[in-house]
Design a protein around this nucleic acid. Structure first.
Lengths: 379, 379
DNA sequence: GTTACTTCCTTCGATATCGAAGTCAAAGGG
DNA sequence: CCCTTTGACTTCGATATCGAAGGAAGTAAC
């Protein structure tokens, strides 16, 4: 993360603006409760933010038994964020306002193997396109962020030892974007962004795991409401050894990695061998819905293997929620099999209040997550 | 945790006092740096704390190139904490000053199966003994805490579903201690306390796992410098399924739990079967040091199994440190086998800066941890 | 309609914090 | 030795925050 220009706010104002932007607070009273500031101080700061045209007052909210609150909203003209979610073959691009609401989202084909210079330049051009076509006039861009389908060193914004991204190793992604934009820049692993985006859909749950079941298997971890990065590699579960009868060598050099059995790529390979050819992992969901036996049994087996890995993590981490996203998550047998494995084997204490459910935030969750993290950099 | 009386400090004073108590700061300048307060504000607050006789000025520290700092210490008369670490057959009892330094520690035999009323009353009597014999006159007791060898619900201070503690299930431990002391009371799982105590010995490491290898296998997790509780059960790894040839049923009702193979209890049973009888898990260390082949091979195997479980957690959680404590940790082959398994199988990115080492805090780590957590409740 | 109560928000004097400037006390270099 | 530099505090006026009190605007019950 790097960046220079920030919103023209001082100390306490930033915190208040953030509470409004994230939707946690809609009135001065809520701001006072959540920020811990005195109600009088909140009123003063809000007055300044209204003056600065970063907030607007808009009608009134619903009464909670007394006077109705005056509803506060982020001014539409406060700023924009340009965010991307880079995948192996596609990119999702989005333009968000500062509250994280998408103004425009589009998906384009993009070959990540073309190398970082090409892809990032192309991405920046696409951002410029989006801004030209969808940005209201006079609204400034405040930040730029992208998700990367591989490990990212959070401090330097570099890609570190990615598996399917030739030419990207150790490339300073954040620096290059920063050179073009002179704004706060965010570069983060895609599963981590997805976790942050998803977390907003689970208010009250401070500890969650977000599983991304697509071509690969990714996982993002939210601890105490914040993204857990560890030393930059946290959340990786794809190269955990699973208990199986057969033995398969994974690309990482170890035998019997979860990814070699339960990823979308592995499922596609197994189905092809059984005579059922599909192009993309998402197509497997269609096969399952059409009750193609090979597909259902493969997906169920993948769910069981994933679930067995999760048992360890559930006992250890004891999350409130496991949200399952990614293109395979639409296959019901997958989640059913995960649930079965976890609930059977985990400690009752750990599963007592555990919810295992499909992700709620939808396809844009990584974009929303990028917006949420960028907001922290902007304020 | 419950409690009423606190130290007579207001807002900012508490934070400063804590920084001194935890040893993070020794001078006004350090307090200013760490607290984020202005140097002038720090001086004012420190003046008040000196006035209140909670801090004392004591000589001067070493210069960092300029004027020497005036060293600040917690006043010995600021208060005491009474803490205990309840085990299956023994209790360690300690009297700490507010900076967590033990004034007195002793270990007594104690049968936890006697039930909570008996044990807790006995414990309180033991605290009173300690206070009579070792407390300087006029120094008030500020808090009471104990570790429990089983799961504890952090909110209510109750024991929840313990395995080897008949009669304790759902017992309101915190309430009973609170009824006798009218002070802040802390009740926490023993491995968690150990983790908190150990964390202080690893400055700069914000994410650590502390493994307790004794009669059972426990684990405490520090995330971002703070104890991770999850929903109250976090850190449990003893009932994770391990990969083995044979199949053993665990007391929890599932086959092949880690505890059934790698705990001190399991090792003792296996050694007895091989004709080598020992009384306590700690005795196994002696056998290993005497190069008794059965013992060494059993311990090494236990280390391998523990290490294989840790691989999953290292990839997922990506800690800075895994500290191994408990009575078995003195056996070098145990840690060596853990290291071998983790370094062989984990992602290089995850093990790049990972340190796997014996616990540094020694036998009193749980007592120190109880002191550290109590300090938060007291300030 | 009247009364009681709740919640939202503002006013205003008391208090806490900040930060720039200054003092104090050491280390290090000719 | 004297000077410069560095860091550790203090002083003091400017600023931000607090909190008690009160007005504003609603709900709920009778």
């Amino acid at each position: 993360m790097s960046g220079k220009e920030r919103l023209p706010v001082t100390g306490a104002q930033g915190g208040l603006l953030r509470l409004v932007a994230t939707g946690q607070a809609e009135s001065r009273a809520e701001l006072a409760r959540l920020s811990g500031l005195a109600a009088s101080s909140v009123s003063l700061r809000v007055e300044e933010l209204l003056e600065a045209r970063l907030l607007v007052e808009e009608g009134s909210g619903t009464s909670r038994g007394g006077r109705r609150p005056r509803r506060l909203r982020l001014a539409p003209s406060a700023g924009l964020l340009a965010v991307a979610d880079l995948g192996a073959h596609h990119v999702r691009l989005g333009l968000l306002d500062l509250s994280g609401t998408p103004l425009a989202v589009e998906e384009r084909a993009c070959d990540i193997t073309a190398g970082p210079e090409t892809v990032l330049d192309w991405m920046a051009d696409a951002f410029d396109d989006l801004l030209r076509t969808h940005a209201p006039p006079g609204v400034p861009l405040r930040g730029v962020g992208t998700g990367i389908p591989g490990p990212v060193d959070p401090a330097s914004g570099r890609v570190v030892g990615p598996s399917r991204m030739p030419g990207w190793n150790n490339y300073p992604v954040a620096d290059q974007l920063g050179a073009r934009y002179d704004l706060p820049v965010l570069v983060e692993n895609d599963a981590n962004l997805m976790a942050v985006g998803e977390a907003r859909s689970w208010p009250g749950s401070d500890n969650l795991m977000v599983l991304k079941a697509g071509t690969g298997i990714g996982c993002g971890v939210i601890v105490n409401g914040r993204l857990h990065r560890g030393r930059g590699a946290a959340g990786d579960i794809s190269h955990v050894r699973v208990r199986t009868d057969s033995s398969v060598m994974c690309a990482c050099g170890h035998p019997d990695c979860l990814e070699a059995y339960a990823s979308g790529a592995a499922l596609m390979a197994a189905l092809a061998e059984a005579g059922v050819a599909v192009d993309r992992p998402a197509d497997i969901v269609g096969l399952v819905n059409d009750a193609v036996p090979e597909a259902t049994s493969q997906v169920r087996n993948a769910g069981r293997l994933i679930g067995e890995v999760l048992t360890v993590l559930v006992n250890f981490f004891n999350p409130d929620v496991i949200a399952v996203g990614g293109s395979l998550s639409a296959a019901e047998p997958l989640i059913a099999a995960i649930r079965a494995a976890v609930y059977e084997r985990c400690l009752p204490l750990a599963t007592r209040d555990l919810e295992i459910a499909p992700a709620r935030a939808g396809q844009d969750s990584a974009l929303l997550g990028a917006g949420a993290l960028l907001l922290d950099a902007v304020l």
